[in-house]
């Protein structure tokens, strides 16, 4: 499969600050790609480099097989872009803005009118007569999504597309993104993990300008899911959690409260992130037995994307 986006050792510095640090990234054509990262991880910088709005300090960016630095209009005519805070001409109405955006692509009048009508309907802006200056943040975001699709792009780049939307607007945008699967490559940056889990098939996690994980979403969850053990005992869970936390194979130890435990912390499952699953499976039952506790259950828990994310980038922020 060809790559819609390919970056090689992509680096961007602002003075002393390194926003992107030799980032290698491949986005397969046709995928719905989630680009995850905490605020300040380098997501927006990456999108600015992909769209040619900023120039890399070093490294290269290929979009749809062309070098962004030299391809100019050839790349721009095939992409759609929604920035994190979209800027519009406040004096235009939504249909005028859409016609303007389509006109910049040289789309013929008949096709353009049909697309404008369809996309405004999709954005829930049909019949809105006020100028964009009077729009709410959510309306602007939906208009931003609509204008990014006006050229039926081969590659759609969305920077935090759902961040300003209410739950219904968010649902609509996510459904729209999901509906593009197989027709358009969608590259979508966000820090909302639930959105990525819902619509993306592949994900990259960015931390301090570096890609720390890059895989199909199921593979990523499976890879990290095998490294979590959940233990539930009849009582004395706090002491057991403490004891487990002292083991060399134990990473983060978390207590999950359960209904009816009275909040005394003596029961409820213990979640342990482990570096050596086999050692954990051998030693935890021994620890439970040595304390004379009753073992209710012990299993490998499946990590959600949120936990994978925290595990990968949370490190010293916990």
């Amino acid at each position: 499969m060809t790559a819609a986006i390919q970056t090689t050792a992509l680096t961007k510095t602002y003075g002393e600050a390194r926003a992107l640090d030799a980032m290698d990234l491949t986005v397969p054509e046709g995928s719905v790609f989630g680009f995850l990262g905490a605020n300040g991880a380098g997501k927006t910088t990456t999108l600015r480099l992909l769209t040619g709005l900023a120039r890399p300090t070093s490294g290269s960016v290929q979009v749809l097989g062309r070098d962004v630095a030299t391809a100019g209009n050839a790349v721009r005519s095939e992409i759609g872009f929604l920035p994190d805070v979209p800027g519009f001409y406040d004096w235009m109405t939504a249909p005028e803005l859409m016609r303007f955006a389509g006109g910049l692509f040289g789309i013929g009048r008949t096709v353009l009118e049909a697309r404008v009508e369809m996309l405004l309907d999709l954005a829930g802006l049909t019949g809105v007569a006020t100028t964009v200056g009077g729009f709410s943040r959510g309306m602007k975001q939906r208009l931003g999504v609509a204008q990014s699709l006006v050229n039926a792009p081969r590659l759609l780049l969305l920077d935090e597309p759902t961040s300003a939307l209410d739950p219904m607007g968010r649902k609509d945008v996510l459904e729209m993104i999901a509906s593009l699967r197989g027709r358009t490559t969608v590259f979508f940056s966000t820090h909302i993990l639930a959105d990525v889990e819902r619509v993306c098939d592949t994900v990259a996690i960015l931390d301090r300008g570096r890609v720390v994980a890059h895989a199909p979403i199921d593979e990523l969850k499976a890879r990290y899911g095998a490294q979590k053990v959940v233990v539930e005992v009849t009582d004395g869970a706090d002491e057991l959690a403490e004891e487990i936390g002292r083991r060399t194979w134990a990473g983060a130890v978390a207590r999950k409260s359960t209904a009816g435990n009275g909040g005394n912390g003596s029961s409820g499952p213990i979640e342990v992130t482990v570096t050596d699953v086999e050692a954990a499976q051998r030693e935890i039952p021994a620890l439970v037995a040595a304390r004379g506790l009753g073992l209710i259950r012990m299993d490998a828990g499946e990590m959600g994307l949120e936990e994978v994310f925290v595990e990968l980038v949370g490190g010293d922020r916990r």
Binding site: G52, N73, S77, F81, P83, G87, A101, L104, F105
Partner: peptide, 13 residues
């Protein structure tokens, strides 16, 4: 205002 981004990510040099 961000309107340059709106225009310059389209085929306008």
């Amino acid at each position: 205002s961000g309107t340059a981004v709106l225009v310059l990510t389209k085929p306008v040099s």
